[in-house]
């Protein structure tokens, strides 16, 4: 069998240049674009002025802190608040009390929808005023229905209550089975022994998973640096409660932890002109909330079907 004739050997190619003119231009263009895009994306850093101090950066996880560590942290917070707002606050880290589980009851027959609770909460808990962060939303529902799809929280009549409607304030329900706690990737939010779900604002990374997980839209995100007028700052603060937050962290209702754990009623309860709000220790059979759960007829746990088992009960009355 004849072999096919072999092609004559090619002359050796000249050595390729390290970088040709064309590829140099292309690479530089890509590099320039990349660098420019990087610079543009880092632009917000130019506006950043809230750099964490070394002490805050190295701070331990709340549950791992010794009392001495906590003392240092509280002093640091007091110092920071004094520097920013010009008055020395009283920051405490109140622990849950033994034999106490907080429950909130709200009488839907009594609520007149005046929204005083909303603003008492803002004032007590040092929420941002501009943009305004409100923990409580008051829903207006047509009589005879509990369909949340028909609810309106932008109502603005001349006076309340309006005929044909009832009002349903919604805030953090302090669930027994809280979905927000499950989704937090850094364990910055957890449920305490007295039933309050708290957030460590120094540990939160601002991913907003908890906001998405909450079926009650109870969690709020600080998109900007909170603006609190100095004259309206509440100096009675708690570490897990109403100390001023930073930009980029979550916050929510904590039953006024700085008041509740000192034995006092939450601010929203004290301001309610209709006496629709009741709060107390469900483990104490003589408390108001025990009396209500025992003797009132209708209770609604909002979105019961979600299986969150809220510690916030709605009831009707005569």
């Amino acid at each position: 069998m004849d072999k096919p004739p072999q092609s004559p050997a090619r002359p050796p190619a000249p050595p390729a240049p390290v970088m040709g003119r064309r590829s140099f231009l292309r690479t530089s263009a890509v590099l320039t674009t990349g660098l420019a895009a990087l610079a543009a994306s880092l632009k917000p850093l130019l506006e950043m002025n809230d750099f964490p101090t070394m002490q805050r950066f190295l701070q331990k996880y709340y549950k791992e802190m010794t009392p001495q560590d906590m003392d240092k942290v509280l002093k640091r917070i007091e110092e920071e608040v004094k520097q920013e707002y010009g008055l020395r606050p009283h920051v405490r880290d109140l622990k849950p009390m033994d034999g106490v589980e907080f429950v909130y009851c709200l009488n839907l027959t009594r609520c007149i929808g005046c929204r005083k609770c909303v603003h008492a909460c803002v004032a007590e808990n040092n929420q941002s005023r501009d943009p305004e962060i409100q923990y409580i939303r008051v829903l207006r529902l047509p009589d005879g229905s509990l369909d949340i799809d028909k609810a309106d929280h932008f109502y603005a009549p001349e006076s309340v209550p309006e005929k044909g409607y009832f009002y349903m304030p919604v805030q953090c329900q302090q669930c027994k089975n809280p979905p927000c706690v499950k989704v937090c990737p850094v364990h910055a939010t957890w449920q305490e022994a007295d039933g309050i779900t708290v957030i460590d604002y120094d540990w939160c990374i601002g991913c907003r998973y908890c906001e998405a997980a909450c079926p009650y839209w109870a969690r709020r995100f600080n998109f900007t640096k909170p603006a609190i007028p100095k004259e309206r700052l509440n100096p009675d603060m708690a570490y897990l409660g109403n100390r001023p937050r930073r930009q980029g962290v979550m916050e929510k209702c904590h039953f006024c932890i700085q008041r509740a754990r000192a034995g006092r009623y939450p601010a929203c309860l004290e301001v309610c002109p209709a006496g629709a709000r009741k709060f107390g220790n469900i483990l104490d059979p003589n408390s108001e909330v025990s009396y209500i759960l025992r003797s009132k007829r209708v209770f609604i746990q909002l979105k019961e079907e979600m299986g969150t088992s809220p510690r916030f009960f709605y009831y009707f009355d005569v």
Binding site: C114, R115, H119, Y155, E158, S159, P273
Partner: peptide
Amino acid sequence: CHNPHSPPFPSRKPAPGPHPLREIG
């Protein structure tokens, strides 16, 4: 809270609502 000589519970002006209302409304 109640006035025995003027039974209806007083109605009142509601406080401002959530943020979008206060901007747009």
